[in-house]
Amino acid sequence: MSLLRTVLAELVGMFVADAAMAVAILALVAVAGALAAMTAPPHIAAMAVLTAGALAVPVVFAVAYAQRTKRARRLR
């Protein structure tokens, strides 16, 4: 049972390293999907939102982590 729990935790952790980042990615895909459904091909807006959003996510969340680290350091 403990092994199964470890495996399941590992599986979840594989995809949800940071819960807020996972939510942001899912929201981004939902917005891009909605744009693709609402517009005619070649879906330039959906393509731009998906690409730009996906490029922004790692930058925003790395900076957010750095800010949290800095705040934690100040509090120590």
Binding site: F15, A17, D18, M21, I25, L26, A54, P58, F61, Y65
Partner: peptide
């Protein structure tokens, strides 16, 4: 695609934070 985004961004963010020394 969505699973790859979740998985890959986790790796990229962590690798960037490691490269930054955080």
């Amino acid at each position: 695609g969505v699973l790859l985004l979740l998985f890959g961004m986790g790796w990229l963010r962590k690798a960037a934070l490691r490269a930054a020394g955080l």
